[in-house]
Write a protein that binds this DNA or RNA. Structure first.
Lengths: 186, 186
DNA sequence: GTCTATATATAGATAGAC
DNA sequence: GTCTATCTATATATAGAC
């Protein structure tokens, strides 16, 4: 399964650097040093590869979230932002959701479903942390958890795009920090 | 110039619905009822079309901004959000910058420059409005104009993506309204 | 300005040998 | 598992007729 895992890693990088239509089996094969036809042994179609990518991201998020179970709501939100920031730090990558959103209407239905599911999972995770955080006083009492979760996601995804345009990953961090300050009572 | 303008309109719609690599000369030609080869009379290459698209957006923004000269800083920001919201209302379109950001690394250099220029223009416009708005008390005194401008752009672009995923344009509006409330002292 | 015809490149995908 | 060879579809792009 070594080759399959390697192929997935390469695909993930390409996806976040050049978009879903911005890389091909050929690109992955080149980097892997095999022929593109060989890749069909692991992924019968590009849709198949696309689904594997999304599942991989979903599994990684689940694993990541499990590790943070003991942290405070505020710390969880901080870590969430840092997870996205680590994308920007790595060659100004943007997030997979931002990538798939663009050609969403042109994607196979199964991929559309898988992506929205992943987004829903993340939004619910944020919302849950925010509900407790608002109650505990980590965040402003006046906030609505649902709207705030959406705003956080938007700031992260939008922040990554700003970083790429401005060729400076710190822009993403300061943008999200500005929001974080606004969410806490000062 | 009628046909050229029509082609640009179709391209703009396709761009915001399916991404830059998500439509072809063929698609435009079909909708226009001509042959794809004929389009090369107006746009010698897809890069040429891409540049025309960006210039078109830039001109539209300039025109839009000029009309708002008399408004208060707060009203300007409100209008800025509404401009993006009108994208979401129209078949859950996302913004051109969000589209081009994804395949940015795969785009011709001239397009990259043109896009970042457009983004810079919008950011400077926001920043200028915010500097006055913060001074006038429209917005919180503690805000930094530059960071706030970035946060607003991120919320708009990210909000459009959320709307598409959640298949609900109002999500974009409530997300930005949540931010707007945070930016004003309440 | 628009057409037909064609060139060229590349994508995703399959068949079958090794 | 990986290869060669091949198929089909589609993209951008050009030449030249009308």
């Amino acid at each position: 399964m070594e080759t399959k895992a390697q192929a997935l890693e390469i695909a993930k990088t390409q996806l976040q650097l050049r978009g879903y239509n911005g890389f091909s089996f050929q690109d992955i094969a080149n980097e892997l040093g095999i022929k593109k036809a060989s890749l069909h042994y692991y992924f019968s179609s590009k849709e198949d590869l696309g689904l594997a990518l999304i599942e991989d991201y979903a599994a990684a998020f689940q694993q990541w979230a499990d590790k943070l179970a003991e942290l405070s709501p505020y710390e969880k939100i901080e870590k969430y932002i840092l997870m996205f920031y680590s994308f920007a730090q790595d060659n100004l990558k943007i997030c997979p959701a931002g990538v798939f959103c663009v050609d969403f209407n042109a994607l196979p239905v199964r991929m559309q479903k898988s992506i929205t599911e992943l987004q829903d999972t993340q939004r619910r995770w944020l919302e849950k942390a925010l509900i407790r955080g608002i109650k505990d006083g980590d965040f402003k009492k006046s906030l609505k958890a649902k709207d705030t979760a959406n705003l956080l996601i938007a700031a992260c995804q939008g922040g990554l795009q700003l970083a790429r345009f401005q060729d400076n990953c710190r822009v993403m961090k300061s943008t999200c920090q500005t929001l974080l300050d606004l969410l806490t009572d000062i």
